[in-house]
Write a protein that binds this DNA or RNA. Structure first.
Length: 502
RNA sequence: GCCCCCAUGGUCUAGCGGCCGAGGACGCCACCCUUUCAAGGUGGAGAUCGCGGGUUCGAAUCCCGCUGGGGGUACCA
């Protein structure tokens, strides 16, 4: 058994019952990488067979999530394809056809048991400490009995006639042989009374119809693998390769990540300011590694180096700290600053810090420069606007005490600031080296440590105590605005000093 | 309860019989750099490779049992 095959056709098949979360996306990603690397076909199929849980908005949420992170599909919703339709709800006739075949060949049977009876059965089994399961009540109904139920207007479900003994075994690419005792299996429902198939029937039929070569999915599906195997065999079809991906656990390891863990939703990550490149890279690293030291991979790198066989079979916890680090790393070291700035721009407009940023404009240049200066402090895209705000607009009022460093008198801060303003008025801010030289000399002249002189200037110009290097900050803010802001600070300090003198 | 899967530092992992007195990353600590905050650099703490049996000249690596964790047990996927 090998995973590098010709004509690879794989699919990601989510059900539209909510937002896509990182676990699902990771499975999609591995499937996608495998397809691209083998020049195969990646299909998106929507498994909308549950009328009750169906949520239309999640279809866009799913496609948006996949597109955001860069997983494009060759066949599926929006793009079509030769094996469509790609919504299971539009393939009902097909499932009916195959179910009839199963019925005719005695691989399945109609069951008229009511949901109430089944619930009661389970309850009794639970009380008696017996394993829950269908009691095969309808497995051997006579034609007369069936007709009787039908006459009562009861719509049957169709169940799989699982062999009573023996074992069903199959191979999992990551785990090797897995076998199950038939005696422990249930006569699972294949077709519901509303005419919709269950997952078990639909996957098998569609995977066959769509020519899927490798069935990739989460490991929560391992327990139903024997049912699917029995179906593949019953239809007389060659079994595909099965690959069950490890689940992703909650950060505390207690249970698998679910849609309840809000932040784990793809779209939530996007809205929180994560870069799709970082999320993609991080997700690829949970459950897979290329070697003992490489961990930064672009999508292209992954397509080249990914290997399905190297996916670890053991579950892994979702680690927000590592993702955050990855995001920060991408912001600070991987994404070109122009690109980064262009992603911050929409947020600036949204928050009203700028009206518009036409390509090639001075504003664009300013934003790009500002982003370049603060990117080492930016962990999330969403922090961008605040971090560069003072390059674009006047800083809001701040506490005067910020202008006075520790072990420094307000009067000293004031004296330093006035002198610094005069220096800048004289030489401007464009020559960073010169400004630094003059201000360092100035510190000595006025008898202040560099920190005692620089901090008041920093606060005056940015309105805060943390900023990029002073001289580059002054340069980008520009001479005129720097001086105005320093004057404003000088006025604040003056009133402080006079109050103190009273 | 029953079935199935998994098992290397707190977390993600490298390791596929000798190169391992276990390597990398995140996190944590210290130091360096330094005009602030970061970023960066250097170093450090942290794993009897879950436990117990085997197999072998030799096991983190193979086998069995146990324990622990996870998954499944619906006319949900």
């Amino acid at each position: 058994m090998t995973s590098s095959t010709d004509n690879v056709r794989v699919r990601f098949a989510p059900s539209p019952t909510g937002d896509l979360h990182v676990g699902g996306v990771r499975t999609a990603l591995f499937t996608y990488l495998f397809a691209r690397q083998n020049e195969g076909t990646f299909i998106l199929r929507i498994e909308d067979t549950d009328q009750a849980r169906y949520d239309e908005s999640s279809i866009t949420s799913i496609t948006e999530s996949l597109r955001w992170i860069g997983l494009d599909w060759d066949e599926g919703p929006d793009v079509g394809g030769p094996a469509g339709p790609y919504f299971q709800s539009q393939r009902l006739d097909l499932y009916r056809k195959y179910v009839d075949k199963l019925l005719a060949e005695d691989y399945a049977y109609e069951c008229y048991c009511s949901p109430e009876r089944l619930a009661q059965l389970r309850e009794e089994q639970r009380k008696a400490g017996r394993p829950p399961g269908y009691d095969r009540h309808c497995r051997n109904l006579t034609d007369e009995q069936r007709q009787e139920y039908r006459d009562q207007g009861i719509k049957p479900v169709v169940r799989l006639k699982v062999p009573l003994d023996g074992t069903t075994s199959g191979m999992d690419l990551l785990r090797g042989p897995i076998s199950f005792e038939n005696g422990k299996l249930e006569d699972a429902v294949l077709l519901k009374s509303d005419g919709y198939p269950t997952y078990h029937l639909a996957v098998v039929v569609d995977d066959k119809e769509m020519g899927i070569t490798h069935v990739t999915r989460g490991e929560e599906w391992i327990p139903s693998m024997p049912l699917h195997l029995i179906l593949w065999d019953a239809f007389g079809w060659d079994r595909p390769v099965f690959v069950h991906m490890p689940v992703i656990l909650k950060p505390d390891g207690k249970g698998k990540l679910s849609k309840r863990d809000g932040a784990a939703s793809m779209l939530a990550l996007r809205d929180e300011g994560y870069l799709h490149e970082a999320v993609l890279n991080y997700l690829a690293m949970v459950g897979w590694a290329y070697d003992d030291h490489t961990e930064i991979f672009s999508k292209e790198d992954l397509i080249e180096k990914f290997s399905l066989e190297r996916v670890s079979p053991s579950p892994a916890r979702f680690n927000y700290e590592k993702l955050e680090w990855m995001n920060q790393h991408y912001i600070n070291h991987i994404i070109p600053v122009e690109d980064l700035a262009s992603r911050v721009v929409p947020l600036l407009v949204e928050q009203g810090l700028v009206d518009e940023v036409p390509p090639g404009s001075d504003t664009e240049k300013l934003v790009t420069e500002a982003v370049g200066l603060i990117k080492d402090k930016m962990k999330f895209l969403t922090e961008g606007p605040d971090l560069i705000s003072y390059f674009l607009t006047e800083p809001p009022d701040y506490d005067t005490s910020l202008l006075v460093p520790r072990k420094t008198e307000p009067a000293e801060a004031l004296r330093g600031l006035e002198a610094a303003r005069d220096v800048i008025s004289e030489i401007g801010v464009d020559d960073e080296e010169e400004v630094e030289k003059r201000l360092r000399a100035l510190a000595e002249e006025v008898g202040l440590k560099v920190g005692q002189l620089f901090m008041p200037i920093r606060v005056a110009v940015t309105g805060r105590t943390a900023s990029p290097g002073l001289f580059e900050t002054l340069r980008v803010v520009n001479k005129e605005r720097s001086i105005a802001r320093m004057n404003r600070a000088i006025e604040k300090l003056k009133s402080e000093v006079s109050v103190a003198a009273d």
